[in-house]
Simulated scan of single mutants.
Amino acid sequence: MTQSKAKQKKFIVLIGLLFILTVITFIISLNLGVVRIAPIDVFKTLLGMGTARDQLVLVDFRLPRMILSLLIGAGLAVSGAILQGVTKNDLADPGILGINSGAGFMVILFIYFFQGSMNSVTTFGIFLMPLFALVGAVIAAFLIYILAWKKGIDPVRLILVGIGVNSGFGAAIVIFQLKMNPQDFMQAAVWLSGDIWGANWKFVAILAPLILLLLPLALYKAHTLNIMNLGDQVATGLGIRVEKERRLLLLVAVALAGFSVAAGGGIAFLGLVAPHISKRLIGPKHQLFLPITAVLGSFLLLLADTIGKNLLAPTQIPVGIVVAIFSAPYFIILLMKAK
């Protein structure tokens, strides 16, 4: 009982610390950019007393992008945590397994056939893009699951199949990119490397309810994930319908990844690194582990976006590249340690 209370206390301290760090990064990000705005002017603008220029920069451009960063970060991080739990593979990540590529492929198809240009995505198109991304993510996950299944899911086989599916969708994406005009080709290339391109309130209004609905569902299934980690036979003996629960959890993970890709492109490694760091901080119990992962994912992506926007300003580094620079070495270490 004492150990449980200590864990709860540690959880509250960690979640509070991550929340404070996220708020500090949020405030700093509001101030920084091509157009610098003093902290006092930021607060004035948020209270409706700022200039027209500050209102335009903060409310119309920066705030939607930052809110999307928080949503996408949480979505990808929890998606990776679920995938690692369901597959019992510490290297599972929606970017590495090809789920992001599947979602990105369908978004590229949608833009190519129905919109004509990334600059001309209509309001109706913004509503459809998450749906197309979800379909692509589900198709990729289905292919991976079918091809990796051989009397169960073998962790190594899963990674190899995922890398193959990722490469296949990547090649298909390049084919359609080559058919685009040069400007759209460059925009698509940047977006696929991880770029929050749909930074407007319409995207926020669409994605926020979807991601905020799926995150509590993932937390609701935390107890099931704990039991499934004991093995399929033990989970079945404890009354868990393993295959049904596995499919539901995979669908939640895939949906979170697909919706995140619709607004943030192919951001890899975040779903790998955030769960690992969280597990080291709080342990493997999913009731504590998943909330820490969600907040940490939001913080890391917001921090990466802030760095990407300001490090080489006025040139912006895609957020996916910043995440990869910091996360790829960690992935290599995990790969070397994997049995």
Rank of each mutant, 00 (worst) to 15 (best):
Q3G: 01
S4M: 11
A6N: 08
K7G: 12
K10G: 00
K10M: 10
F11W: 01
I15C: 11
L18C: 09
L21F: 07
V23D: 11
I24M: 05
I27H: 05
I28A: 15
S29V: 05
L30G: 05
L32D: 08
V34S: 14
V34F: 10
I37K: 09
K44I: 06
G50T: 13
A52P: 06
R53M: 12
L56G: 00
V57L: 02
V59Y: 08
D60V: 00
F61H: 12
S69A: 12
L71C: 09
L71N: 11
I72K: 04
A74P: 11
A74D: 15
L76W: 04
G80N: 07
A81G: 08
L83C: 02
Q84E: 14
N89L: 06
D90F: 00
A92K: 08
A103T: 05
I111T: 13
Q115Y: 00
G116D: 14
M118Q: 11
N119A: 09
N119K: 04
N119S: 10
V121I: 15
T123A: 06
G125W: 01
F127L: 08
L128S: 05
L128D: 06
M129L: 13
F132Y: 10
G136R: 04
A137H: 04
V138P: 00
A141F: 12
I144D: 04
I146T: 11
L147W: 03
L147Q: 09
A148L: 04
G152T: 08
P155L: 05
I159P: 09
I159K: 07
I163V: 15
I163W: 02
G164N: 13
G164L: 11
G170S: 11
A171G: 12
A172K: 00
V174T: 13
Q177S: 10
Q177E: 15
L178E: 15
K179C: 10
K179R: 15
D184I: 02
D184W: 04
D184V: 02
D184K: 01
A189V: 15
W191R: 08
L192R: 06
D195P: 00
W197K: 04
G198T: 08
G198W: 08
W201F: 02
K202E: 13
V204D: 12
L210S: 05
L214Y: 03
L215Q: 11
L215T: 06
L215W: 07
P216G: 01
P216A: 03
L217P: 01
A218T: 10
Y220L: 15
K221W: 00
H223S: 14
D232T: 07
D232W: 01
I240K: 00
K244E: 09
K244D: 08
R246Y: 05
R246D: 05
R247F: 12
R247W: 14
L248S: 14
L248T: 14
L249H: 02
L249P: 05
L250M: 14
A255S: 14
G258H: 07
S260Y: 04
S260Q: 12
V261F: 07
A262W: 01
A263R: 04
A263Y: 12
G264R: 03
G264A: 03
F269I: 07
G271Q: 09
A274C: 09
A274L: 13
H276N: 12
K279M: 15
L281N: 03
K285Y: 09
H286C: 11
L290K: 10
L290T: 11
T293F: 07
A294M: 06
L296D: 13
G297H: 01
S298P: 05
S298I: 06
A304D: 10
A304R: 13
K309S: 10
S327I: 03
P329M: 09
M336K: 15
